[in-house]
């Protein structure tokens, strides 16, 4: 790869206090790519996301975003740089209206184009446009997921991290969600897709990393990994 990758993670160690979860993760996301991060529960996927968004401080290693070292940056600096995460469990603001949730997506970044981006989000999710005044907490799980993604898009992400976006969605909604991820990517957005949904993630991603016990157990082009017998082993933790 000649040009500087969008995101480069080198030998990342992170955890909670003395409890280490990540033991040296190396990972690259190029511009315009969908990269899937797979792994069983407890493998360290969400810890990786929390470290990337600077919600926890890495104990060692480096995170470079568009050539800039953000390893020890504050989470607001990371947002300002355009690394936006749609977290597991959505974490929308339940006591705020749909409109206020979306507006807060542009609290720090994307403020100048807020009106235009709002219109774009309603274009992508017409349902949100119909429910502008509704309290976010009173919406269904699928609608809340749309809102969480919409809120993330309001910040004009350069790289969007999606953490378990299909969690709790019906198969039909999950299919729609993956189609949407494909559309966003086709429009040029780089996406780091963290999922338990292995088959669909590998179908949509260009490359994938499989994390096991806090290290990268496998990585490569998504099409190759889909056929790799080691995927099953790593994923299911079978010896």
């Amino acid at each position: 790869m000649l040009e500087v990758p969008m995101l480069e993670v080198r030998d990342l160690h992170a955890g909670y206090g003395a409890f280490g979860v990540l033991h040296g993760i190396d990972m690259v996301v190029g511009a315009g790519e969908i990269v899937a991060v797979l792994g069983a529960n407890g493998a360290g996927k969400t810890t990786l996301n929390r470290a990337l968004s600077a919600l926890i401080q890495p104990s060692a290693g480096a995170i470079m975003f568009e050539g800039r070292n953000i390893t020890h940056a504050g989470y607001d600096t990371v947002v300002q740089a355009g690394l936006i995460q749609v977290p597991e469990g959505r974490k929308i603001f339940p006591n705020l209206s749909v409109r206020d949730n979306l507006l807060l997506g542009a609290f720090l970044r994307g403020r100048a184009n807020r009106a235009r981006n709002l219109a774009r989000v309603f274009d992508i999710f017409p349902r949100l446009g119909e429910r502008l005044g509704q309290l976010a907490g009173s919406m269904s799980g699928g609608e809340q997921q749309m809102l969480a993604i919409g809120r993330g898009l309001m910040a004009e992400p350069r790289l969007l991290i999606l953490d378990e976006p299909s969690l709790g969605l019906s198969p039909v909604l999950t299919e729609e969600l993956f189609a949407l991820i494909g559309q966003l990517n086709a429009a040029g957005l780089a996406i780091l897709l963290v999922e338990q949904n292995v088959v669909q993630s590998l179908a949509i991603a260009q490359r994938a990393y499989v994390i096991e016990h806090g290290v990268v157990a496998l990585h490569g082009p998504a099409a190759d990994l889909a056929d790799d017998p080691r995927l099953r082993t790593a994923y299911l933790g079978l010896a």
């Binding site: 968004s53 919600l55 989470y75 607001d76 990371v78 947002v79 300002q80 936006i84 995460q85 977290p87 959505r90 974490k91 929308i92 603001f93 339940p94 006591n95 705020l96 206020d100 507006l103 807060l104 997506g105 609290f107 720090l108 970044r109 809120r151 910040a155």
Partner: peptide, 21 residues
């Protein structure tokens, strides 16, 4: 925006951090 952020952080501080608040 500040008023919205005040209402937001009380219920969902982590969601707020991810917006840079």
């Amino acid at each position: 925006d500040t008023g919205r952020a005040i209402r937001a952080v009380a219920k969902e501080p982590e969601g707020a951090r991810l917006m840079g608040i």
